[in-house]
Structure formats: structure tokens, C-alpha cells
Amino acid sequence: MRIGRRLGALLVGALLTAGASLGTATSAQAYNPDTGAWLGKIEWHPYGEKLWVYDTKNDGDTFYVQLEYVTATGTLPTGPVVSAPGTSAAVEYTTYDYNLSEGAGHMLFVYDDAGKGDYIGGAGVTT
């Protein structure tokens, strides 16, 4: 079963938006709604502009995160689609370091596939 269907409502919006408005590191955690098992976590650190993506369920599936710059007409990708590396470790993570304009508006989008075809959720963050 794909992660997007298992996640139910990923708490990306509420958690990332609340922390971002305070200018602090924020995270969103993903749980399987059927079993309660922890599947992973996304962290945004505005002072250092770092994105951390964790996968804590070694099941051959992960989620993908894209940071996008907010423009007057929509959003534009900023950097690559980020995901955990997919090793056999019990907890996998990757960190991506951005170089962003101070105070610019950005959005984090979470997908179930690297091609960004299966949208899970998203939230605004500050830099």
C-alpha cells in the first residue's frame, strides 16, 4: 500500500505553519492511521535554511518533499525533490541545505512519488 493512502492526514500544514510563524524549527510527523506506526518526519529549520526528511519505516516506500518559492502567479521549485535515501537502516534521513532570500515566502509540498504525481499535503514556511 502506498504511503499517501496510509498517511491519512499528514500533519504538515498545522505543525509547519505554527512553527514557521514563530521563526523556530518545526516538524510534521507521519503516522499510519490503521496501526499508529510512526512512518517518518519532516523538519524545517529557518535559521540555517535546512530541510530534514526522515523515513522510519523500512518498507520500501517513502515520501518526497519539494520546497517552492512563492511568486505573484504561483510557486516555482527551489532545489531538488528531497527524500530519505532508501537504505536498509531502521531510521533513514537526509538533509538539504538551501541558500534562500531572507524573509521570502516558500511552501513545502509533500508527495508520495518522486515525480510529484501523488500529492499528500503542504504548508507555508518562512526563511
Rank of each mutant, 00 (worst) to 15 (best):
R5V: 12
R5Y: 12
R6C: 06
L7T: 14
G8E: 06
L10Y: 12
L11I: 03
V12G: 03
G13W: 09
G13F: 13
G13C: 05
L15Y: 10
L16T: 05
S21M: 12
S21H: 09
L22R: 07
L22D: 09
T24A: 05
T26D: 02
A28H: 03
Q29L: 06
A30G: 15
T35M: 12
G36S: 11
A37W: 05
W38H: 14
L39V: 05
G40S: 08
G40Q: 03
G40C: 05
G40M: 05
K41F: 05
G48Q: 06
G48E: 12
T56I: 06
T56F: 11
K57M: 13
N58R: 15
N58F: 10
D59W: 08
D59M: 10
G60V: 09
D61R: 02
T62Y: 07
T62V: 06
V65T: 07
E68P: 00
Y69Q: 03
G74E: 13
G74W: 12
P77M: 06
P77K: 06
P77C: 09
P80A: 08
V81P: 02
V82S: 01
S83P: 02
A84C: 04
A84R: 04
P85L: 08
P85F: 12
G86Q: 10
G86R: 10
T87D: 08
T87V: 10
A90Q: 13
E92S: 13
Y93W: 15
L100V: 10
S101N: 07
E102N: 01
E102W: 05
E102S: 11
H106A: 04
H106N: 07
M107Y: 10
F109Y: 12
V110T: 15
V110G: 01
V110Q: 02
Y111L: 02
D112A: 15
D113P: 04
G115F: 09
D118V: 08
D118S: 15
I120D: 00
I120S: 03
G122S: 14
G122C: 06
A123R: 01
V125C: 02
T126Y: 14
